[in-house]
């Protein structure tokens, strides 16, 4: 059984129909990549899963339960974390406060905290600093760390490498590989090389519909398909 199964999800924002019937399945474990051109509907898909925009017809099954129509907070409590494109960190709060807010009981599990320090050493260094003073890469690390400070079944991550230096992108890739050992990641990414190095399964979304799904290995080997769906040249 899939961890997340989306069937015919349609989302309308104001008067605009953004998703016209998105369907795909995210298997449990590993990194699932959602690819697509700008404006294809990738971010809307993640936000709709998270309940930040309410999808109309269709279903969003998570661990066998339909979560479409649930409040965002209830979806989060089921074990889905969200790392938005803009990182969504609270700049006026310290690194520690940002993380403690994401804990269920207001205190850290020492083992999880150690894991966060190991994955993102900069966060330990800037523990008491206000988050606005962090660099773009450190903010992204904080955003991801917030998603793993508690056990989650699924993490939705939206374009985490955007605007980051190559060294930070590489570190982020390592972190995602480690996180994916225990948690499923649904990753929206424009950086195809980064996505290719991480993903096992994937789907391509275009104009609010899934136009291709399969394994990343097959897609990475088909330059014509990449060109047709993503506009990538060989």
């Amino acid at each position: 059984m899939s961890l997340l199964s989306i069937r015919d999800m349609k989302t309308q924002i104001g008067q605009y129909h953004v998703l016209h019937g998105v369907s795909f399945e995210v298997p449990e474990g590993g990194v699932f990549i959602l690819l697509g051109r700008n404006g294809a509907g990738k971010t809307t898909t993640l936000r709709s899963i998270m309940g930040l925009w309410q999808p109309s017809p269709g279903s969003v099954m998570f661990q066998g339960r339909d979560i479409a129509g649930l409040a965002t907070a209830d979806i989060a409590r089921l074990g889905i974390a969200y790392v938005p494109e803009n990182m969504g960190i609270f700049g006026g709060l310290t690194v520690e406060e940002n993380l403690i807010l994401a804990t269920a009981k207001g205190r850290f599990d020492p083992a999880r905290l150690r894991r966060i320090y190991d994955l993102f050493p900069a966060l330990e260094k800037f523990w008491t600093k206000q988050a606005w003073s962090l660099s773009g890469g450190q903010k992204q690390m904080l955003s991801v760390a917030r998603a793993i400070v508690e056990p989650r079944a699924l993490i939705l991550i939206d374009e985490p490498t955007k605007g980051l230096a190559p060294s930070i992108v590489a570190a982020m890739g390592e972190a995602f590989r480690e996180i994916a050992q225990t948690t499923t990641i649904l990753l929206v990414e424009q950086n195809f090389n980064f996505a290719k190095s991480l993903g096992r399964d994937m789907a391509v979304i275009d104009d609010g519909r899934v136009v291709h799904s399969g394994t990343m290995a097959d897609f990475a080997a088909d330059a014509d398909l990449q060109g047709a769906l993503l506009g990538l040249s060989a």
Partner: peptide, 24 residues
Amino acid sequence: TRIGLLIRAGVENREMVEALGFKI
């Protein structure tokens, strides 16, 4: 307090507070 932390976070980004599992 944790409530205060939530209020300060909510001032900055209500949506993210919801996404962390709190009913704003």
